[in-house]
Amino acid sequence: MAEEKELVDFVSEDGSTYQTYLTSKMEKRKAYKRIDLKKIESVIPGTVTDLFVKEGDHVNIGTPLLVLESMKMENLIKSTVDGIVQNILVKKGEHISKSTVMVVLM
């Protein structure tokens, strides 16, 4: 199959620059992002069936934040840090996809 992409400069491990095509996986890759423990993200898609905190609440490591029902299971989502609830970005009954920020702590 003829390659319709353009050759690009690519710096390789030995420091030299090559003219080469990029694979589509390489083109679509997302840059590395450090995990922010204060942003509680869903690791699985599901439905928020219960919320236990409101904005301004103090939470500790292990404080239950909400229930995310997914794959026939009620998953209790707990805080992984000590902090104050700054923002709740989901509603009870809302269906969310993976990697949705649900609660922001400060």
């Binding site: 690791v43 699985i44 997914s70 794959m71 026939k72 299971m73 998953n75």
Partner: peptide, 8 residues
């Protein structure tokens, strides 16, 4: 392990 990701 149902405790994580419902054991999927």
């Amino acid at each position: 392990q149902p405790l994580y990701l419902a054991g999927v």
